[in-house]
Design a protein around this nucleic acid. Structure first.
Lengths: 341, 341
DNA sequence: TCTAATCACGAAACCGGTTTCGTAAATAAA
DNA sequence: TTTATTTACGAAACCGGTTTCGTGATTAGA
């Protein structure tokens, strides 16, 4: 391997220019203390020698890293992929760097990640909490160290900080009502967590729609998926088998949609004649499923972008207080053919 | 906002313990110079006070950051999402941090990103180059600074370094041959770049299959998509309209598949009776499209994992030379119903 | 018993920037 | 003309760890 070359430092620049280190430093950061001509000389040499300052030396002294930490449960989900895109767009524009961490829905991993952030590695944090996360001690600890942390999508109500979310409750209510209007008299709600903010709110919306439309809520219409795909699938199949006609399904997250299609195919149930389906989903391919899937599509890119913008704004302004409330960006119900016309 | 608290430093620990800074530092890093009892005392206090060392101070001195930079064209593609997953799995296990950057297929952005890496921000780089990238000066510059850089998926043949790829040529050949065997006498090849390694190799495989099976290669069977989705779509539609029977399509990347379905729907062409389709794709929903899409599925997670493992190995071992050859992990042809039985 | 290692630790330099503070020269104000 | 500012720059401290080197005390070897 090549030798690690003794890197170009500001000291060497100063030597070549016959200036002091401090002058060069100030010239590079365009300080008003430095004359235009000196700045010119310095920048010419910077260009010529292709000088790139060491960010860690700078971070050490200034106590900020121009880096934001992003913690998400997984990346192979259209929502998070698009959210990252939004985050990155802001970061690139504002000169920030993005450290990404996956919690894999695991609380201990999430804790470990946030613990590391206490080191000052990042200036601020954007997080969508893991499924397993029910406590917030790790988040409090980080906030105690004055690291701004913003929730997006999956929030914790108990923590007082900015939250960028979509209208989970309302859009679930709307979707449920849509199914009811289309003739469903029994609607299954597919969840994968009892505790996650998004699934709770979506469930609340579902319940509200039932109530508004004088339908009875029944616990056995709620299917909570585990991590055991096979077991979950069998449970779903069993429910569908036993269901009478006019069944509707509302899937509260993207990954629960495909098993429904699978089960209907295996049971020779037709969508939407036998079973009508709506799913929360940001996948492009929803429109090309068989039949095209009616979805509640979240503004994932916008959510990521808004969260990142707010964080950067907080970091840039000296006395900018994080607004401690929720920003709600609404989702769209996109009607396709998995529901009746 | 909360005051930035004067963080706990190694100096304060030393003060409380009546030890020197160097002793504490060595104790924490489990140096053999320090007695077991002292180590115990130090670590007890570290636990008690919840001390987290400043990574930037450490990086500055040791000249490594335990951070790897990942540069990809986009994230909203199943392949890259899965690859990130693979990369992250290694990083988490080995205690590395992952900085992520999107080139958005743009050469200038990619250059800027790599330029920043010359600062020592990352210990090594994993990159899948942008569509626009045809030169490699930016990569050479980085390698000159002794920053190990590994290509994955989209490589540059002209650069001598490790490359983790799949068998693009062979799997395209296989897919094309499959279409021929199923009766296609005209096969469209959908590309989106003339220069990208993957599209070139896939095109080569396509050509080879034609040759092997005594079919003529024709330039007008190659559709190269631009970024103008509308224009591309019209072009595709036009080709499909003018095509005779027994047409096959090989889409060289995931995102080209859905427009095919759209076009066939709009033209009332039936898949696979009128048009048979195979696409390179890692999307889970391929199996649920209408009809289910026959795909060439790449080992995306494995590619990411392998690339990251190799990089970490290079970084950990003192004199580990990056093996300068290609590691090929084969793709799978998954037969579904967009091709005839 | 005397010398040679070994052990356990501390002082201080160091990594490469940033920032504070001091100062000589130039300019403005009185 | 004298004093007060402003300008343009440099010396040195500083950020918080790591590493080198030196040293007294203890142990091993002869």
């Amino acid at each position: 391997m090549k030798e690690k070359i003794n890197n170009l430092t500001i000291k060497m620049l100063a030597g070549q220019l016959g200036l002091s280190v401090s002058t060069v430093s100030k010239a590079i950061s365009d300080s008003h203390e430095i004359s235009a001509s000196t700045k010119q000389r310095v920048n010419d040499l910077v260009q010529k020698l292709n000088y790139v300052p060491n960010p860690y030396a700078s971070s050490l002294r200034t106590r900020n890293s121009k880096t934001i930490g992003v913690v998400i449960p997984e990346v192979a989900d259209s929502f998070f992929a698009q959210a990252i895109n939004g985050i990155e767009s802001v970061a690139q524009e504002k000169g920030y760097h993005v450290l990404i961490y996956l919690s894999h829905e695991n609380f201990e991993k999430e804790k470990k990640i946030l613990k590391d952030f206490e080191s000052g590695r990042v200036d601020g944090v954007l997080i969508s909490v893991a499924k397993e996360t029910t406590q917030h001690c790790h988040i409090d600890a980080l906030m105690d160290k004055a690291v701004p942390i913003i929730f997006f999508d999956r929030v914790m109500d108990e923590v007082t900080t900015a939250k960028i979310i979509t209208n989970d409750c309302e859009s679930a209510r709307l979707a449920t009502e849509y199914l009811i209007k289309k003739g469903c008299n029994r609607i299954l709600f597919l969840s994968f967590s009892h505790t996650l903010s998004i699934t709770c709110k979506r469930l609340a919306g579902y319940k509200k729609a039932l109530l508004d439309n004088h339908l009875k809520y029944a616990d056995n219409n709620i299917l909570t998926f585990s991590n055991d795909a096979k077991k979950d699938y069998l449970l779903l199949q069993k429910k569908l088998k036993s269901a009478s006609k006019d069944v509707g399904i509302l899937a509260s997250v993207e990954k629960l949609a495909l098993p429904i299609y699978q089960a209907c195919e295996d049971l020779q149930l037709s969508i939407p004649e036998d079973v009508q389906v709506i799913s929360f989903s940001n996948s492009d391919s929803a429109a090309f499923l068989h039949p095209p899937l009616t979805t509640i599509t979240q503004p994932a890119f916008e959510i990521g972008k808004t969260a990142a913008s707010l964080l950067v704004k907080t970091l840039e302004r000296k006395n900018f207080e994080l607004p401690m409330e929720e920003i709600v960006i609404p989702s769209d119900l996109i009607i396709r053919k998995s529901t009746l016309p």
